[in-house]
Design a protein around this nucleic acid. Sequence first.
DNA 1: ATTATCCGCTTAAACGATTAATCTATAACT
DNA 2: AGTTATAGATTAATCGTTTAAGCGGATAAT
Lengths: 342, 342
Amino acid sequence: MKPKPKLTLLAETFNVSVATVSNALSGKGRISPDLAQRIRDKAREIGYVPSSAGRALRTGRSGVLGLVLPDISNPLFPQIAQAIEQAASTRGYGVLIGDARGSSEGQSEAISRLMERGVDGMLVIPRRGTRVTDIRRPLAMIDSPSTPGNTVSADHRDGGVKMGAYLAELGHRHVLIVAMSSRSIVQADRIEGVKQGLGERARVELIFTDDIAEQDGSVGSLGLADYIARGVTAVATLSDLTALRALTELQGAGFSVPDRVSVTGFDDLIWSSAITPGLTTMRADMAEIGRLAVEALVKSIERPDQAERTESGTVKAKVDRVPMALVIRSSSGEARSAETQP
Amino acid sequence: MKPKPKLTLLAETFNVSVATVSNALSGKGRISPDLAQRIRDKAREIGYVPSSAGRALRTGRSGVLGLVLPDISNPLFPQIAQAIEQAASTRGYGVLIGDARGSSEGQSEAISRLMERGVDGMLVIPRRGTRVTDIRRPLAMIDSPSTPGNTVSADHRDGGVKMGAYLAELGHRHVLIVAMSSRSIVQADRIEGVKQGLGERARVELIFTDDIAEQDGSVGSLGLADYIARGVTAVATLSDLTALRALTELQGAGFSVPDRVSVTGFDDLIWSSAITPGLTTMRADMAEIGRLAVEALVKSIERPDQAERTESGTVKAKVDRVPMALVIRSSSGEARSAETQP
DNA sequence: ATTATCCGCTTAAACGATTAATCTATAACT
DNA sequence: AGTTATAGATTAATCGTTTAAGCGGATAAT
């Protein structure tokens, strides 16, 4: 059991001061190339690892970013977490997670906890309708382009437009949009997009699963059969989880997908490609979003002078929205022509 | 813009030394109750937050745990992450995430990164067949009771037994088990359990989706129709994702679930309750597992003398396995009697 | 010969908290 | 009165790193 190597140990073995060792390792200051190399070699050999606490205390930076999510159990979380962890670790930062547990108070608490832990900056995926305030550190917000203070996010409206246009092209003129929450900005943007993409001539109906759950008391049927009877040929959901509900409900009721009715989702979650039929959905380039958000945040941390801010005080990325991509699988197809309908 | 409050600021306003302030806030040392209270009030008023770097440097502890996962994109991740974040923050610890990105090298790198960040201990969900080594800090491992060094985990074998027994009780005598990887200890334990639960008399077939993917080249059909033709009345998958594949494949092929064939899953992932029919599955008490793992880890950090270790050096929890619970929904039902089969 | 310039390294002061050791009145006891 | 406890503070060291400033001595410029 050797003592954990510190700068002083290294300094002693070379009979130099710790300052020289520090310079050798950091590459700053003036030091003879030869000695510097020898110190670096030795450091690697004995497995020297700088103390993050010592460094943090001196430099005032911890090298850690906070990631605050509305609810970790949201199935979108893995995608975002992975993208951000990747982007952060590439840039030499660690990621501390904070769960809002579905409430605004939880969100505030999570933010406080992370602040107390000394994060250098924060990435927040806000709970709908919450304002993040009292942050004295750089903050990147990931929500939707139309959210005030949004740093970068998928262009949900664009995604909606693409999905709507795709369905229109397949001949769908009567579409049911199934959203979850009426208070989510993301969902609102998607709704708008889908409507626009479908065009003026299309007949569009809209339901919210949250409302159904409230009336119904539990997670029951969406009652899709009625809509199909009324002539709906496509069910455009705004999340893959809803798409899954719709798809299984329809399949269980004997409606063939996509022959009788098309079903589409959003977000390309893990199961979209595993089910039969494969789910046509809209994918966000999470890796890119994570990269941009982290890049902007890190820039704001390391070069506060050069970094731009939004009016809300959040950091500004090079672009504030990244386009979504249509992933066509087998759950969507041409609309059943009107005359062959029962 | 006031300067960030430190101990010295507090000390100055009360004309006492920083030591006194520190004592007042920590409750240690000797200090007059009155002054202590006044200091605490003032500290709250001006929003004093101790510097984690200063404290970490002095005490040698960061108050942060590392969480290493084989692959964040695994849909099981949200459950675990949420449970652990909750348990950790209850005990005053933060959670730093590390993604192994599916490889053993990635796992080693993730562990190194977290070590360099100065975590006090680590929670590792190991990639199958990897040994975690060279950790000079308390380590909790979450995998399966039969994994050497396992700290605590769901009792996967027990879950299998319960599922098998349940199916047997429903009259299923010919069951297809669909596993994913043949190299996963967790899955092996579940397989064993299901077989035992079904009993000697049952006829059991077993396939691995990884093998199919290799032969097939892509994520294709599981070919379940053949098995049903051969008399299989229940498909017991070892993960909800596989269950979803099976369920949709069967529904799409016109087999009624559960009338014609029962389908069961494992893990009670988010969609199990959203689909139609609701998926009968096996749930692990993640909150409890997280609690136990964090408790054991924290104990080992804060009272190294009292903490027990396994032979592998990992920390030992009060119990090393927590039972799984059968969640009966609508995807399972009585076996179709042999005579009514085609 | 004098001054200026660099190089290569050392000195020493932070950063902000914790804590063992010490000091000083005051209270308590004989 | 003299001794001893004790409460309530202070002093000062320490954690490990970074970094501005300084210091000889050699080389170059004037």
